[in-house]
């Protein structure tokens, strides 16, 4: 997925919510989480990893394991 500006990411998330596209939601929330992780805003990153995890679980994606693992390492699961 190409890098999105925060505004574009927001818009893409709204679109994906409207479409009920859980695989895309997982990817977009994962993206948002990485962004906050890079700026060491761990609380925000964990919020978005949680969102990503939920939609990855719903979509039956293997990435669910990665998101869960990140959260586990930070004591968030």
């Amino acid at each position: 997925m190409p890098l999105l500006s925060p505004a574009a990411l927001d818009a893409a998330l709204l679109d994906a919510h409207a479409a009920g596209d859980s695989a895309r939601l997982a990817a977009l929330y994962g993206k948002a989480a990485s962004r906050f992780n890079e700026t060491a805003d761990i609380d925000a990153a964990c919020f978005y990893w949680t969102q990503a995890l939920v939609f990855a679980l719903e979509a039956g994606l293997d990435e669910a394991g990665d998101y869960a693992e990140r959260l586990r390492r930070l004591g968030r699961i």
Binding site: S22, D43, F55, L71
Partner: peptide, 28 residues
């Protein structure tokens, strides 16, 4: 994949097991 509750997104496996309770202890 999992069954996601449309309200606060608790997720269940097809055998009924509760798999995820997002933000249940506060955001993240």
């Amino acid at each position: 994949g999992a069954i996601r509750c449309p309200y606060h997104s608790w997720c269940y496996d097809l055998d009924g097991a509760l798999k995820a309770t997002p933000h249940v202890g506060g955001p993240g």
